[in-house]
C-alpha cells in the first residue's frame, strides 16, 4: 500500500502550522506501519488533547481522540480488552508528562504492549505557547515571560525509571532513523516509549529567537548525537539519540492470561 492508503484524504490540508514537526512524525508513523505490513483494521491510535493529538483524525485506523492527558488510560482499556490490537498513542508534552504523567509512569510500570510516541516540542502549542515540563531552563513562554525556572523532565530517564521495556529518542531531522525506531517500537512486545523532538516554530521558535524552521531542525542535528558516540565525550551537553532500552520483560496482557488460567483452575 502507498502512504495515501493510510490517511483520510478528505481532511487535508491538515491544521498544523507551516513547518510544524508533527506532520513529519505522522509521516514517519505511517511509513513504519507500511514497512511492517500491518493491516489497518488491527491498529488503534489513541490520542489526548493538543496539536499532537490531532494526528489520529488524519489516519485511517480505529482512532480515539480522548481527554487531555488521559490517552494512555483509555488505551489501556482498549488494549487489555482486545490484546490482538496494535495500539499506538501519540502525545504531546502536557499529555505525557504533565496532566498525564501519572498514567505515563504506570503504563510503563505495567509494561503493557502499547507504543507511546512523545512529540516533544517544549511548549504547549495549541493553547498559545505556555511552558511545559519539557521546556528548558531559561526558555521563554507566554507564562514564563522572564525565563523558565522549572527544571524539565528527561523523558528517556523518566520512562526508563518507570519500567518501560523499550525507550528511544529521535528527532524530526532524523527521519530515516525515526522510521526504523518506530518499526522496532511497534513490534516490541511491551511498553515502548519513543520521544521525538518535534519543532513548534509558531509558539516555541518565535519566542526563543529561533524563528526559522530550518534553524530549529539544524539544532536537532547539531545538538544531538547517537548514543555512545565520541562526540558526547567531547561535548557532554549533546543530547543522545537512538535506542536506550530494548529488553524482553513480562508483558501485562500476557501476564493477565496467567491470571485467567489460575482463576479457571479455582486458585
Amino acid at each position: 500500500m502507498a502512504v495515501k492508503d493510510y490517511i483520510r484524504k478528505r481532511f487535508f490540508p491538515h491544521i498544523w502550522c507551516p513547518g510544524c514537526g508533527h506532520g513529519t512524525v505522522m509521516n514517519a508513523m505511517i511509513r513504519a506501519i507500511e514497512n511492517l505490513g500491518l493491516e489497518k483494521n488491527i491498529i488503534a491510535v489513541v490520542s489526548g488533547i493538543g496539536c499532537s493529538a490531532r494526528i489520529n483524525g488524519y489516519l485511517d485506523f480505529h482512532t480515539l481522540h480522548t481527554l487531555h492527558g488521559r490517552a494512555l488510560a483509555f488505551a489501556t482499556g482498549v488494549k487489555l480488552s482486545r490484546p490482538e490490537l496494535t495500539v499506538v498513542v501519540p502525545m504531546g508534552d502536557g499529555d505525557a508528562c504533565a496532566i498525564g504523567g501519572n498514567h505515563f509512569i504506570h503504563a510503563a510500570r505495567r509494561n503493557i504492549d502499547i507504543t507511546a510516541i512523545i512529540m516533544n516540542n517544549s511548549i504547549y502549542g495549541m493553547t498559545g505557547g505556555q511552558y511545559s515540563p519539557l521546556t528548558g531552563y531559561d526558555d521563554f513562554a507566554t507564562t514564563a515571560p522572564f525565563g523558565n525556572i522549572d527544571p524539565s523532565f528527561d523523558v528517556v530517564k523518566l520512562a526508563t525509571g518507570a519500567g518501560a521495556s523499550f525507550v528511544a529518542r529521535t528527532t524530526t531531522y532524523h527521519v530515516t532513523s525515526t522510521i526504523k525506531i518506530l518499526e522496532k517500537a511497534i513490534t516490541h512486545k511491551g511498553f515502548s516509549v519513543v520521544e521525538i523532538l518535534s519543532q513548534c516554530p509558531t509558539q516555541f521558535g518565535r519566542r526563543n529567537k529561533i524563528p526559522s524552521v530550518v534553524d530549529m531542525l539544524n539544532s536537532y542535528k547539531t545538538d544531538t548525537t547517537p548514543i555512545g558516540s565520541k562526540e558526547k565525550e567531547k561535548n557532554p551537553d549533546l543530547m543522545e539519540r537512538g535506542i536506550f532500552i530494548q529488553e524482553d520483560r513480562p508483558e501485562y496482557c500476557t501476564e493477565y492470561d496467567k491470571v485467567i488460567e489460575r482463576a479457571s483452575k479455582g486458585r
Binding site: 489513541v46 480522548t66 488510560a73 489501556t76 482499556g77 487489555l80 480488552s81 482486545r82
Partner: peptide, 13 residues
C-alpha cells in the same frame, strides 16, 4: 480518573 477512562476504551472494543 484512569479507571473511568479505561472502561470507556474497553467499551469501544
Amino acid at each position: 480518573i484512569s479507571s473511568m477512562c479505561a472502561i470507556v476504551g474497553a467499551s469501544l472494543t
